[in-house]
Design a protein around this nucleic acid. Structure first.
Length: 458
DNA sequence: ATCGGCTCGCGCAA
DNA sequence: TGCGCGAAGCCGAT
């Protein structure tokens, strides 16, 4: 299958030059399988009769990144480097600010191909490369099923407004991607890069916050790990998926968010796998596609079209007003960030999900909502709650600092949601209660599940 | 156990 | 201009 032209965007007007190689500057789509940017780069290299060189810029001052994130990322990159090698493609990791790494190797390239990210800094990096490179820079989208601009030209109001817009594109975009064989292998090309054989040594050398330990026991990075885990999900868990979205005591979820965040697996690949699952699982398949495509890409839409997606002021006017109306309301409990991070509150359910997050780098989606709503309830002001929630989210989750993170936190404060009965502190934003957990799921089993996880992690 | 009301605003029908 | 309806809810009445 060919790559849809809407995935491909030239970022500057510079011509393709004579150069030693085509450069694929990999940053978001950290995989060799189902990567449109990579396949586009291979096709360009073949067309120009050049080699393909892949470079990844490794910086150790990535905002809020810590040992946990980097361990997972390097586990994945190690595999990606190996699979590219088996395809005859040279990949190097270079220490430095990603756009500068790309620009440096871009000096000898005929063109630079890059993948796509929706966060501010990711966009700024690509703009810098596009402006400063003296060769053509082309961005290829591979981390959403339907490119954001194809879906909509504005920030969508809610899932229900984006859903039909995505659905009518699915026929066009839910198509496979074939690997193209490289004509001129680049493995012999002499160029220095970071040695990935000794990942632990490399991690020690990098200037990373060591206070958040790796979680390889629960999530080991890499495309093949993601694929195997997904196979298991389809075989054993998918059949419960539509029934168990608010059953955190079960493990009937795919656990793909860390892999998606680092681009170690393609959402298109996952969607196609789901489509091929048996027809009698129709309801479950639709429920999964809703999460993987509609809500995931609503998050991309939010980050892309909302300039201030990472601050409190991004929430809708009605929500800001109603939360301001209740800013002075008495709080029965107020916890500071340290107490929250230590899972030291009066609420055993909340403590359990905080521990799940801390020890595994992950949390069941249903509990993510409860977790966030309670921080709003237990903070002196909604603004402070928002900052605390985002900071803890980005610190512990493997998929922190994702468009999904910003959207998920904003949802707590009314984004993509609607008004409900007015009440203390929350105003008209949606409230969630411990009694709801008791009513709707086996929350005691969830608490026990987390306790067992934590015990096994120590 | 189940149901209606709460409440906002988008997008479509008219 | 009116109206249906919605990312995962709560609460009180029946």
């Amino acid at each position: 299958m060919s790559i849809q032209p809407t995935r491909i965007q030239p970022l500057n007007d510079v011509d393709v030059r004579k150069g030693e190689y085509v450069l694929y500057w990999m940053q978001q789509s950290q995989r060799s399988a189902y990567n449109h940017a990579l396949e586009y780069a291979v096709q360009q290299a073949n067309k120009q009769d050049r080699m393909l060189l892949v470079v990844f810029g490794l910086m150790d001052d990535y905002p809020e990144a810590n040992l946990r994130h980097y361990t997972f990322m390097l586990e994945g990159l190690k595999e990606t480097l190996a699979t590219l090698t088996s395809r005859g493609i040279k990949m190097v990791l270079r220490l430095g600010h990603p756009p500068e790494v790309a620009l440096k190797l871009g000096r000898r390239a005929s063109m630079i191909v890059c993948d796509r990210g929706y966060l501010k800094h990711q966009r700024a990096w690509r703009e810098q490369v596009a402006q400063e490179a003296n060769c053509r820079v082309v961005q290829v989208e591979s981390d959403v099923v339907v490119p954001v601009e194809v879906v909509s030209d504005k920030a969508e109001y809610a899932a229900r407004t984006i859903r039909p817009k995505i659905n009518r594109q699915l026929e066009t975009y839910l198509v496979g991607l074939k690997q193209t064989r490289i004509k001129n292998p680049s493995l012999g090309f002499k160029i220095k890069g970071i040695d990935l054989d000794d990942t632990e040594g490399l991690l020690r050398k990098l200037n990373l916050d060591p206070s958040v330990p790796p979680v390889s026991r629960f999530f080991k990075g890499g495309t093949s790990r993601a694929g195997k885990r997904f196979e298991g999900f389809i075989r054993h868990r998918l059949k419960h998926y539509d029934q168990h979205s608010n059953q955190p005591q079960t493990n009937d979820i795919s656990h793909m968010s860390p892999y998606l965040h680092f681009g170690q697996i393609s959402p298109l690949y996952l969607a196609l796998k789901i489509c091929r699952a048996p027809d009698f699982l129709k309801a479950a398949k639709e429920a999964y596609i809703e999460e993987l495509v509609v809500r995931h890409e609503l998050a991309m839409n939010f980050a892309f079209y909302t300039a201030n997606y990472d601050v409190y002021s991004c929430i809708p006017g009605w929500a800001q007003k109603t939360l301001a109306d209740h800013q002075q309301d008495k709080r029965d409990y107020v916890y500071n960030r340290r107490q929250l991070e230590n899972a030291d509150t009066h609420d055993p359910y909340w403590n359990a999900c905080m521990l799940e997050m801390k020890h595994t780098g992950f949390m069941h989606n249903y509990m993510r909502m409860y977790w966030g709503k309670k921080i709003l309830e237990w903070s002196a002001t909604p603004q402070k709650a928002y900052r605390t929630t985002l900071a803890i989210n980005n610190k512990y989750f493997l998929d922190g600092r994702d468009a999904n993170s910003y959207t998920g936190v904003a949802w707590i404060y009314g984004v993509h949601d609607r008004a409900w009965s007015e009440r203390s502190i929350f105003g008209k934003t949606r409230y969630m209660a411990a009694s709801g957990l008791e009513r709707k799921c086996d929350i005691a089993a969830y608490v026990k599940k987390v306790a067992d996880l934590v015990r096994s992690a120590i």
